[in-house]
Nucleic acid binder design. Structure first.
Lengths: 186, 186
DNA sequence: GGAGTTTTGTACCATCGAGTCCAAAATAGG
DNA sequence: CCTATTTTGGACTCGATGGTACAAAACTCC
């Protein structure tokens, strides 16, 4: 008897990812998300809850997608090739300025809702776990894959920040190349 | 004839640095800054201008102080020693969660005032220039000191982000050690 | 001590953001 | 076709925030 929902849940979350990715956690208002998703205020609040809830859904979904991309970057490549591919890809997009939603989020966590903080941290934990597995898979002899994974994530975060500093793109690109070489060779 | 200012300009800016550092660029309200500095609304607006103006003053002042600390960290040390000192110092403070004001700021720049963006970027340019000079001073044979400087700043930014991810502190510390070793040896 | 100028405290305004409420619309089953 | 149930749209509340206005206080110079 109930009137069915007229929108696609995952499509809405994907649109929300776009909105938060573009505008940032704090600066993106519920109205912005509403406009991006196309649904009405009431539908949003009745289907998801408050802003924090859709934010968490968006972050989780982003991490899912990101992990898929991560595994693709490692497929059939050496560690050095994979890292150089990932790092240079980051260094290339220097104009869009969106960066990585997860990294942007962790840098805007101060004073945020506890549940949101936990969602973001859980996202990083998942990323680190998958990264460590991929490292171990590509270089089975390593006993310190977890440390290398942390180092890689740190390098990615560093490059994404470097990207926003306005330093010459050539410098950022060279830093990316060095990070890839240093980590793979260490 | 004019009534003189009863507050110390630089002390006020230092207090503002503390407020923005603690609370973040966007989340810190003018009232927060007022409370931290102790002066009244009118004094703030008549002496500095709007929120963006005091924000810029705070960022510039923070960079000044940070550059002094940077030079201290390099004094009488090898590159590897200096980097390990800086990186491990960052990795140690994992509970305060304040990070670095400049890096926090660059991650909150989306949609910000153009003048603020320029101030932040100018801060990074100054940091990069000083870092390159220090590298060149410690390892005169290097021709690529600017690249190494960018790499170091990237590593610092990465570590500061890593710090906020909730990953195990031991992992962050190990990543710091690796960054120092990799960069110094490359 | 007085006058003129500047600071300072407070009240105020306009705007915007999150979240709520309620009536109208839409749909499945009888 | 009618009813029960749910979604949908929009109006609304309430608080916070950046910024302004203005009168009272404070200080220097004459």
């Amino acid at each position: 008897m109930p009137r069915p929902r007229t929108f696609d849940q995952t499509a809405v979350i994907d649109a929300a990812v776009g909105a938060f990715w573009q505008g940032g956690l704090g600066a993106t208002s519920v109205d912005d998300v509403l406009h991006a998703t196309g649904l009405a205020r009431s539908s949003m609040y009745s289907s998801f809850g408050g802003k924090n809830d859709i934010l968490q859904a968006a972050i989780s979904r982003y991490v899912d997608r990101q992990i898929v991309e991560l595994e693709q970057a490692f497929r059939g490549r050496s560690l050095h090739e994979a890292l150089e591919s990932i790092f240079l890809e980051i260094a290339r997009h220097n104009s869009d300025g969106k960066g990585c939603l997860l990294i942007n989020s962790v840098n805007e966590l101060r004073g945020a809702d506890v549940a949101v903080i936990q969602t973001v941290r859980a996202g990083f934990a998942r990323m680190a776990k998958h990264m460590a597995e991929l490292v171990k898979q590509v270089q089975p002899h390593r006993a310190d894959s977890a440390c290398v994974a942390a180092e890689i994530i740190g390098a990615i975060a560093g490059l994404r920040t470097l990207q926003k500093t306005g330093l010459p793109p050539a410098l950022v690109r060279e830093a990316a190349r060095r990070f890839a070489r240093n980590i793979a060779e260490s």
